[in-house]
Design a protein around this nucleic acid. Structure first.
Ligand code: MG
Length: 230
DNA sequence: GCGACAG
DNA sequence: ATCTTGTCGC
């Protein structure tokens, strides 16, 4: 698609000035959820770096939504072109994530991201942006807050409080198990917050983070250590 | 101008 | 994200 081309262009040219404008131009492209889409497979990505943060190790894994068994996984190793700037994470990790995704033979039903989706200053975090570029349903699940105000949810698995920014609910703060710090869930593309929150919770069986993200994170570190040496 | 600030 | 072993707590 032309959008992906424009996106890659901004990333490779480190066009930090245009990046926020590109994000704004995509907000109107966030799609509504389709009617009752059944989820059978879920996909997640993660990226690890080495010491100088220049080489980028990206992983993508697809697992059964119900049994959490890995069905397929791919990886990409390349140099990061864009720096890490809060609010512009997608421009740093997006290119390799898209490349890894395109390697998949299986087309997953939904994408899960280690980062924000709609809970973003311009409502265009990495989950929303990549979801739009790949035209797939997507969810943002971040370990820490980027923007917004929230109350601490009760110490019970499944407890959630609204994440608010400028009078608008942009996400949910979700306790995925007793005794852990909550995660920040927001819509990506083609999904509603209620559904996104339920899906994230369903993926958290025994740990704080969703199984797909844990597996992607494990694989991203594995391919780096395997190529770096322990 | 100052402080906050996903990964 | 990364630098890093042992250590505190349930
Ligand atoms: Mg990550």
């Amino acid at each position: 698609m032309q959008l992906i081309k424009s996106f890659i262009d901004i990333c490779e040219n480190r066009n930090i000035k245009e990046a926020p404008e590109f994000q704004k131009s995509l907000v109107s492209l966030i799609n509504s959820p389709a009617d009752r889409e059944k989820i059978e497979t879920i996909c997640a990505f993660d990226v690890s770096y080495d010491k100088q943060s220049r080489t980028n190790y990206t992983s993508v894994i697809v697992m059964g939504y119900h049994d959490h068994q890995v069905i397929e996984s791919k990886s990409v190793i390349r140099e990061a072109t864009f720096p890490y700037i809060p609010g512009l994470l997608a421009f740093r990790e997006g290119p390799s994530i898209i490349e890894a995704y395109l390697k998949l033979r299986i087309k997953p039903d939904i994408l899960l991201f280690d980062g924000q989706g709609y809970a973003h200053p311009r409502r265009m975090g990495i989950a929303t942006m990549i979801g739009i570029l790949l035209d797939k349903p997507s969810i943002g699940c971040a370990k820490t807050c980027l923007i917004g105000e929230w109350e601490n949810p009760k110490n019970i698995r499944g407890a959630a409080t609204p994440l608010i920014h400028k009078e608008e609910q942009i996400g949910n703060v979700l306790r995925t198990r007793i005794g852990v710090i909550p995660v920040f869930v927001s819509i990506g593309n083609r999904i509603d917050l209620q559904n996104a929150t339920e899906i994230v919770l369903n993926c958290c069986t025994t740990f704080r983070l969703p199984e797909p993200i844990r597996e992607a994170h494990r694989l991203a570190n594995e391919i780096r250590n395997k190529r770096t040496g322990r």
